[in-house]
Write a protein that binds this DNA or RNA. Structure first.
Lengths: 252, 252
DNA sequence: CGCCTATTCTGTACGGCGTAGAGAGTTAGG
DNA sequence: CCTAACTCTCTACGCCGTACAGAATAGGCG
C-alpha cells in the first residue's frame, strides 16, 4: 500500500536516505553514483561558492551526469539539503571525557558548533523549518544534552539550554561572517565602504537623533573589523550565556 | 526553502530609498505607484504566503502593473527586501519610560522583537549579509542600546548584549514556528505525524544509543506542542539570558 | 504654441531554476 | 530468453530575476 503525499515528500524515503537504505538486490543497470557522492559533491560546491551555487544542474555537472539522473537517488533538492546538513554534523568532535562538569562540556559544544559554521558557512542559510531526524543530528543532540544531564535541570530545561546555546552560536557566526565578508565581496575595504557611505548617512540623519547608536556602532564596528575579535566576542557572549545557565543550575 | 539575500548594489540609491528621496520635479509621465505602495504590497504577500511567494511578477500583478515597471522604483529584488525589513521595524513600540532599570527595558526589547517575528515570520528567512542602514533599523538599534546604557558596560559590551538578545529571539521564534507549522503544512496533526514516523525511526535506531535525546526530545516535543508553551519557553530562556547579563553588570 | 528630452511603463527575451514525463539502454529473475 | 525493474537522457513546462528596445507621457524651453 502506498500513501499519497501531496504537499511534503515521503517521510519513509528520506528516512531511508538519512539512515542508509538496506541494500536490496537491484534489477536494472548498476548505479553509476551513490547518494554519498551526490551529497559530497553538493557540499563541496556549497563550501566553495555558497548555497546559492548549489543547483541540481551544477551538482550533476560536477558528477558528469544529467540533472534528472540525480532524482533516481534523491527525491528532490530539499531532501538533498537535509542530507548535506546531517552529513556535516558528523564532523563535530564529541569526546566523552571532558573534565570539569557541565560548563566545560557546554563550552565545547558551543565551540564545536562555531567551528562547524566557519567550515561550512552555508549552514547559516539553511532554513531548518522541519526537524531533520538524521543519525548525526540526533547523535549531536544527544551529545549536547548529555553536557547538562545530571545537573538537576528538568528535561524541558535541558532542551531549552541546549537550544539557547545553539541559537547563540548561530547568531554570533552570522555577525562574525557579515563583518568578515562585508569588505570582501563588495571589492572595497572596510574603510572605503564606510568612507563612501558615511557622507550619505550624514546628509540624511543627524547623529543627535541616535546618539547611542552612533557611538556604540562605531565602537562595535572597530572591534569586529579587528583581526581576531569576532572569536573573542563569541567567547565573551558565551561566558555571559553560561553565567545565566549557572544561575539556574545553582538554584536547583 | 532557503534564505533570501538582501543588500548589494549602489549604496547611494538604496540610501535614498530607505530614507526617502528628496522630491525632485520630474519630467516624464506621473508615476502610477510609489515605493511605499510596492513595499507594502510585497510585505502583504510575504505575510500571507511567505517569502517564497514574493516575486517581482507577483508584486507587480497585485499592483496592476508589469514586473519590469517595478524597476523604475527599485533597483532590484534585494533592495525591495531591504525596504521591507526596514519598514516592518517601524512597528515595534519604543516607550521611553519603562520603569525598573535595564532589565525590564531589555525584556521589552526582546518581547517586541518576538511579537514582530510572529507578525512577520518571513523575517526569519531574511539574511542581511551587509547592514541595512535604514531609519527604522537604526532607530531600533539605538532604542535597544539605550536599554543597557548607563549600566557601566563598555560600548562593545553593550553591542554584544543587544546582539545576544536579538539572536536569542531569532532562534526561539524559529523553534516555536517550526513546532507550530510542522503539522499544518503537512496536513496532519502532530500525533499523526509522529505515529507515522516513529515506527520508521525505531526500525533504524535503537533508543539505547541515544537515551538522553530520546527522553528529552519526547518531553520537549510535548511541551512545545502544548497550546501556549512556546511563549513560556521563550520567557524562560530570556530570563536565563538576562541572568547572565545581570552577572556581568553587577561585576562592574 | 511645439519641440526636446527625461521619465514611466510595456513587451519580449535570455539564461537560470526545480522537476514532470516519455523513452532509450541495461541487467537480474522467471 | 523474455520481461520487468531499474538507471539515465532528452525535452519541456512554468517559474524566477532582469536586460533591452521601444511606445506613451509630460515638464522645460524656444
Amino acid at each position: 500500500m502506498t500513501t499519497e503525499y501531496s504537499g511534503g515528500s515521503d517521510p519513509k524515503r528520506i528516512m531511508e536516505l538519512l539512515w542508509g537504505a538496506p541494500e536490496r538486490t537491484r534489477r536494472g543497470p548498476k548505479p553509476r553514483l551513490s547518494v554519498e557522492q551526490i551529497v559530497a559533491a553538493a557540499t563541496a560546491i556549497a563550501d566553495a561558492e555558497g548555497l546559492a551555487a548549489v543547483s541540481m544542474r551544477r551538482v550533476a555537472e560536477r558528477l558528469g551526469v544529467t540533472a534528472m539522473s540525480l532524482y533516481t537517488y534523491v527525491p528532490g533538492k530539499a531532501e538533498l539539503l537535509d542530507l548535506m546538513l546531517d552529513r556535516v554534523c558528523a564532523e563535530t568532535a564529541k569526546p566523552d571525557d571532558v573534565p570539569g562538569g557541565w560548563r566545560p562540556r557546554l563550552e565545547l559544544v558551543a565551540r564545536e558548533a562555531w567551528a562547524l559554521y566557519l567550515r561550512h558557512p552555508w549552514l547559516l542559510h539553511l532554513a531548518t523549518n522541519r526537524p531533520v531526524l538524521g543519525p548525526n543530528l540526533i547523535a549531536r543532540y544527544d551529545y549536547e544534552l548529555r553536557a547538562v544531564d545530571g545537573t538537576g535541570l528538568t528535561d524541558v530545561e535541558m532542551d531549552l539550554v541546549v537550544q539557547m546555546v545553539g541559537d547563540y552560536v548561530h547568531g554570533a557566526v552570522r555577525g562574525a561572517l557579515a563583518a568578515a565578508t562585508l569588505p570582501v565581496d563588495s571589492g572595497k575595504t572596510d574603510d572605503e565602504w564606510w568612507a563612501e557611505l558615511s557622507p550619505l548617512l550624514e546628509k540624511v540623519y543627524d547623529a543627535d537623533r541616535f546618539p547611542v547608536a552612533t557611538r556604540v556602532g562605531a565602537a562595535a564596528g572597530q572591534e569586529y573589523s579587528a583581526p581576531l575579535d569576532p572569536a573573542r566576542a563569541f567567547e565573551f557572549g558565551l561566558a555571559r550565556l553560561l553565567d545565566g545557565v549557572a544561575a539556574l543550575i545553582e538554584r536547583r
